[in-house]
């Protein structure tokens, strides 16, 4: 399945003139969501930039039906909505949770975990801009090591929480990583997720020019650099099978990765650690640990592996 840009109709995938900042990754992501699902989806949005992006009543900047809801209830509200659609016989409508990293990894986590455990037939997308942007750039559990935020003045001291891994551990049917830097990869993953019945989780890295302190023209480029430096590997885990996405395969070899400083130096939030080699080393070690995990997942979840045979019997 490849995406043909010429064949995609010139729709308003988001409504122009919405309240997002220039260069916003969240409106980029919403466009790709609509390119993938057309008119056949509903969004459930907990508080965050995406609630505000919609703009002022009676107009809405999002070109899809939206249920705005409190943080703690996004995944549960989506579960209920999906059940209602099933009762109405509308089985092909995708119910999509669209939540920030704070809404996913911190405040909405119990509902997310519950929905994954119940294997609800929904698509949960975490739009990860690595901080609470809507309330003014506070750290979340998904802010990476070293990053400045308004609550980590000297750089965050802890590493990023690995939500995709936690979702695989839940036994989710589909788990994937994507970034707005590679839109067609994200669209293809959305389309594949739609074909699977059960709980689907997509982690969308969304570089935010305001919170990460970079030139808004570089949103896509920074998303691509996150992949090229090996910091954010793109992968797909579907029904017990794990595989690296083609875009990330070559970065398995550390020698092929772009130096991490190329990614850090474009972002003001890392400015204070650029001339501290010991801090950069910590981030490089983190990348090594990420790839060690990828290796473990590849070994555990392939058609030959014991873990997968075991999963098939469940």
């Amino acid at each position: 399945m490849t995406v043909n840009l010429k064949k995609l109709p010139d729709h308003k995938y988001v409504m122009p003139g919405n309240a997002a900042c220039p260069g916003c990754p969240e409106t980029m992501g919403m466009r790709y969501l609509k390119m993938a699902y057309g008119d056949n989806f509903v969004m459930v949005i907990p508080a965050g930039c995406s609630s505000v992006i919609q703009g002022i009543w009676p107009k809405n900047g999002i070109n899809a039906p939206v249920l705005n809801i409190v943080f703690a209830a996004a995944a549960s509200a989506a579960s209920g909505m999906k059940a209602a659609f099933d009762m109405l016989g509308k089985k092909d409508v995708q119910v999509v949770v669209w939540a920030g990293d704070g809404g996913t990894g911190d405040i909405g986590f119990q509902a997310l975990s519950g929905a994954a455990e119940r294997d609800e037939d929904i698509v949960y997308i975490c739009v990860d801009n690595e901080a609470y942007m809507n309330t003014g750039i506070q750290r979340s559990s998904l802010t990476p090591y070293g990053a400045w935020t308004t609550t980590t003045w000297t750089g965050k001291k802890e590493h990023k929480k690995n939500i995709p891994l936690i979702m695989i551990a839940h036994g989710a049917k589909y788990v994937a990583t994507a970034t707005v830097g590679y839109p067609t990869d994200f669209i293809e993953k959305l389309q594949r997720a739609a074909k699977i019945r059960g709980f689907k989780y997509i982690h969308l890295l969304a570089p935010c020019p305001v919170g990460w302190r970079f030139d808004p023209a570089k949103t896509g480029e920074i998303g691509q650099l996150a992949v090229k430096t090996g910091l954010f590997p793109l992968f797909e885990y579907a029904e017990g099978k794990f595989q690296l996405s083609p875009l990330s395969r070559r970065y398995k070899d550390p020698a092929k990765r772009v130096p991490i400083t190329e990614y850090l130096k474009l972002q003001g939030r890392f400015r204070h650690l650029l001339n501290k080699p010991e801090e950069i080393k910590k981030i490089e070690e983190y990348i090594d640990s990420v790839w060690y995990m990828i290796d473990v997942l590849e070994k555990a979840f392939n058609p030959q592996a014991e873990a997968q045979k075991l999963l098939r019997t469940l």
């Binding site: 409504m15 003139g17 919405n18 309240a19 703009g55 009676p58 107009k59 809405n60 900047g61 070109n63």
Partner: peptide, 17 residues
């Protein structure tokens, strides 16, 4: 609940930004 409908310019004429 207040329902809003998709329309351009929900934050005004953003070309002025």
């Amino acid at each position: 609940a207040p329902l809003s409908k998709p329309a351009p310019g929900s934050a005004g004429k953003t070309g002025t930004w």
